[in-house]
Structure formats: structure tokens, C-alpha cells
């Protein structure tokens, strides 16, 4: 059963849980920016948690269904409409053959996940259907969806009752201001203590350039660096280092002005110092930040980071139990 794309939205891509194992070759894991929302969308339509969905950013596509089926929209508050009639997010919805799914204006968050029973069944590249446009991998011909595309859908799913929904307390969204927990480390020794304190006390705003590769922030104080003799291979700019690997979630601050958090489509290495990394439990929240969102970076230690990871895993388990 193909889904016909009538309009594509802004940069709507096919995403699953990504292709781990190739980052050392420069190919990022990719996959959903908000992994919990993708898993929940799949559970709502009886798919395996890691089935491929559409990730719509800031605005929705218009999709026509060619068979009766079930769908769900999770993540951002991007209100779905079926043949123009408003429907709930985070809920199992039935659609009939010939009906069209469209969306109202985005109310909160940034990325919505659209799951269809059976999952999107495009060809996998390196073990994943996730679209990595820069590398032309996954998706349809390695690109975002376009009007005229017919998206293939699988046939394997479990029945979920129409109207089933994920309890509100298990839907995770950033607060306002958004708070991202950060474990300082990596090249944090390049920054003076006072400057690091300011980095954590300042209020930042998401820049409009933020995308799947990285989220850029503006508005905080410029970083002050510890004096040094530039090491071999590093440039003269104090934010430069001898090229190194970039972890997912690492925060680089080129020239000490605008922090960039690397996300799912990250570059794997380069020559900017990193002040630390966003903890794994908060990576999903970044994917739900709109441009201009006020954001604070909160300093945590490894103990807090690991307990936050357990809390996040418990939330996912609670969602699973909703469907047990």
C-alpha cells in the first residue's frame, strides 16, 4: 500500500533508529532526532519500535492513503487533520482509503513523527532506512520526500485499538526555558573557570540554522580561553585544536561565540574544541527545540547523567506497558 505525497512539508524525511557502526568512517548514526517519539509512534500503530516513520520538521506534509490503515503522530504538537478534520496527537488514528492527512500550524516542539501500520518499507542502506541527505543514503533516493513520491508501506503489524493514546505524563517535551544537561569534559581545560561558569549561567537562544547535523545557539557571553602555545596542527584561533573525533552531543564553540551541539547527522571529527557533551537522556529534547527557544545549559556529573539515562529508560518501559 503506497502513501502518495501531495505536498512534502519543509524537509520531511524517512527515519528509523539509524545506522550505528559507521561513524568511524564518517557516516553518522542518523535516525530520528527524538527517538522516544519515534518509538511511541510505532507502538501506537503496532509496529516494531524501530520501524521507519516520517520525521516532519516545523510543518507537516500532505499524504494520501491508498488503503484503510492506522496512523499515529507523536513528538511535536503538530495537529493532524484527516480530510480537514482535527485529530489528536499521540493517538492511534484510523484512516480510510483515499483520505488525506494534513497538518495545522505547529503549536509546540519542532519534529513530529508520522507512523503508519506496517512501517515505511523503502530499501535499507547499511542496515537502516534513515535518510542521510548529505551522503545520499536511505529514504527515497537518499533525499527528503517530494510531491509525487509513492512511499511503500509494509504489511506486518499488530492490532492496536483505535483511540489508544500515550498518557500525557509520558510524552517528553522540553520546558521553557529549555534545560539541557551537560557533562563538562573533552577540551574544557581550554576555557577559564569564570567563563565556564558564565556558559552555564547565561541564557542562550536556538539559532535559525539549527538542523539535523547540529544545533547552534546564540546570545550568551563569548568564551574566554586559557592562554596557550598553539599545538602542532591546530590553528591560531584559540578555539582550534589538533583535529579530533567529535562525539554525538558534543558542544563545540567555534571562535568562542556560538555553541553548536552535534546531533544525529553529525560530522565525525574536526578542529574545534568541545566544552563537554549533552547527556544521552536529553538528546531527544534538542530535536524538539524551535529556533529562538530560550535554552539553559545545566552542569551535571556522571552520576546524574547515568541516573537520568535510567529515568529515561523507565519512561520508555512505561510507554511499552501501555501497550502490553
Amino acid at each position: 500500500m503506497p502513501i502518495n505525497v501531495k505536498s512534502a512539508g519543509l524537509a520531511t524525511t524517512i527515519q528509523d533508529l539509524g545506522r550505528p557502526g559507521y561513524y568511524h568512517l564518517g557516516i553518522p548514526v542518523g535516525g530520528a532526532m527524538d527517538r522516544l517519539a519515534l518509538r511511541a509512534a510505532n507502538m501506537l500503530v503496532g509496529n516494531d519500535e524501530g520501524a521507519a516513520c516520517l520525521e516532519a520538521v516545523f510543518m507537516g506534509p500532505e499524504l494520501e492513503f491508498t488503503e484503510d490503515t492506522q496512523i499515529a503522530v507523536t513528538g511535536a504538537e503538530l495537529p493532524p487533520k484527516i480530510d480537514g478534520e482535527a485529530r489528536e496527537t499521540w493517538t492511534t488514528l484510523s484512516v480510510r482509503k483515499g483520505q488525506v492527512l494534513s497538518f495545522d500550524y505547529l503549536r509546540a516542539g519542532a519534529r513530529a513523527y508520522i507512523a503508519v501500520a506496517g512501517g515505511i518499507d523503502t530499501a535499507a542502506n547499511l542496515g537502516s532506512r534513515s535518510t542521510y541527505a548529505i551522503g545520499a543514503l536511505g529514504g527515497i533516493d537518499g533525499r527528503a520526500i517530494q510531491p509525487g513520491d509513492a512511499i511503500p508501506v509494509g504489511r506486518d503489524f499488530r492490532n492496536v485499538a483505535e483511540g489508544t493514546s500515550v498518557p500525557r505524563n509520558l510524552r517528553r517535551m522540553p520546558g521553557n526555558p529549555a534545560e539541557l544537561r551537560v557533562l563538562p569534559g573533552l577540551y574544557v581545560h581550554r576555557v577559564t573557570e569564570e567563563s565556564l561558569d558564565r556558559f552555564f549561567s547565561d541564557s542562550w537562544k536556538v539559532a535559525s540554522e539549527a538542523d539535523r547535523m547540529g544545533y547552534r545557539f546564540q546570545g550568551g557571553s563569548p568564551i574566554e580561553f586559557v592562554d596557550r602555545e598553539p599545538p602542532f596542527g591546530a590553528g591560531s584561533d584559540p578555539s582550534n585544536i589538533t583535529d579530533a573525533c567529535y562525539p554525538y552531543g558534543s558542544i563545540q564553540i567555534p571562535s568562542g561565540t556560538e555553541p553548536i551541539i552535534l546531533h544525529r547527522d553529525a560530522v565525525s571529527g574536526g578542529g574545534y574544541f568541545m566544552v563537554g557533551t549533552v547527556i544521552s537522556a536529553d538528546m531527544d529534547l534538542i530535536g524538539q527545540l524551535q529556533p529562538h527557544t530560550e535554552t539553559r545549559f545545566v552542569r551535571v556529573n556522571m552520576h546524574t547523567a547515568l541516573s537520568a539515562r535510567r529515568v529515561r529508560a523507565a519512561t520508555l518501559d512505561s510507554i511499552r506497558q501501555t501497550f502490553a
Binding site: 519543509l10 516545523f58 510543518m59 500550524y105 505547529l106 535559525s208 524551535q290 529556533p291 529562538h292
Partner: peptide, 9 residues
């Protein structure tokens, strides 16, 4: 006329 997306106008 409304903005379909966030950003800089």
C-alpha cells in the same frame, strides 16, 4: 498571511 514555519522573516 501566516508563517508556515519558524525562522527569520
Amino acid at each position: 498571511v501566516r508563517a508556515m514555519m519558524p525562522g527569520i522573516f
